[in-house]
């Protein structure tokens, strides 16, 4: 089975955001693999362990993003692709999906895995857009994936309920928390990863046309949200504090 995993490098979720000259400062930031993509990589490796085949991880990003590819290779992926071009620095979701689709279309594939969303942009467009570009079915927010022959059964999180979906391969599946427990790369895995191939491509390698590079949406401004004012600590017995809280929520804030 040929499996592709789309991964993204993001800030660690414990990072604070600092603004510098109107944009988000990247100095000294700890970068990690987007947590949802870790589930996707883990699932790809488990499917390969079960069915055999080949796992290719792919990302779009500058040099620093190769660390997430190395992590995926150390977990057990076989090869990696990194696409970058200065023109992609401000690419919107439309452009990114054009580029990813062009790279994936080059070879045969059976299954594409990706994170349900990235914790930086939070848009969650990547998976469904890519499936549409490739004209294949998708199932989002998977918490379980079983494949038999060419048939996949996906259990997906639907606002807290679980939906059971059947679809034939080729299929794109996005990973939700709970899909699996991602492994830590082992020391031999890390050593082996150093010898695994990373293919580096730019837009002209992929034959991307100018219209495919034309952003449909642009960022006008980035800013920090208004800071929350420190509130009021209640005091007294438990009954007194509860009473005061309820009366404030009811008459001042009118939220209960």
């Amino acid at each position: 089975m040929e499996i592709i995993v789309c991964v993204k490098q993001t800030f660690d979720s414990e990072e604070k955001i600092v603004m510098k000259d109107g944009s988000i400062a990247e100095d000294d930031v700890k970068y990690v693999m987007n947590p949802y993509d870790e589930y996707a990589v883990e699932e790809a490796i488990r499917q390969k362990e079960q069915h055999g085949g080949n796992v290719t991880v792919i990302t779009v990003g500058p040099d620093r993003t190769e660390s997430v590819l190395r992590t995926a290779l150390a977990m057990g992926a076989d090869q990696a692709v990194r696409i970058w071009d200065e023109q992609l620095a401000d690419a919107d979701e439309y452009v990114l999906s054009q580029v990813l689709a062009a790279a994936i279309r080059r070879n045969h594939f059976d299954l594409i895995l990706a994170g349900y969303m990235a914790i930086d942009s939070g848009a969650g467009q990547g998976g469904p857009r890519l499936a549409e570009e490739l004209d294949i079915a998708h199932a989002a927010a998977a918490v379980k994936l079983s494949i038999q022959g060419r048939q996949a059964v996906v259990e997906r999180d639907a606002e807290g309920d679980v939906e059971v979906i059947e679809a034939a391969l080729p299929l794109l599946v996005t990973a939700q928390q709970g899909l699996n427990e991602p492994r830590y790369p082992s020391l031999p895995g890390i050593m082996k990863a150093k010898r695994k191939p990373i293919e580096r491509l730019n837009c002209s390698d992929l034959g991307i046309k100018p219209d495919q590079l034309a952003n449909r949406t642009v960022v006008v401004e980035q800013m920090l949200p208004p800071a929350r004012k420190a509130g009021q600590m209640l005091s007294g017995t438990v009954a007194e504090m509860a009473g005061e809280l309820i009366s404030k929520l009811k008459s001042e804030d009118k939220v209960i």
Binding site: I17, S121, V218, V219, V220, E221, Q222, P225
Partner: peptide
């Protein structure tokens, strides 16, 4: 963006 740690206008 960043789950509300920052905002953007598009």
């Amino acid at each position: 963006i960043y789950a509300g740690k920052a905002l953007q206008t598009k």
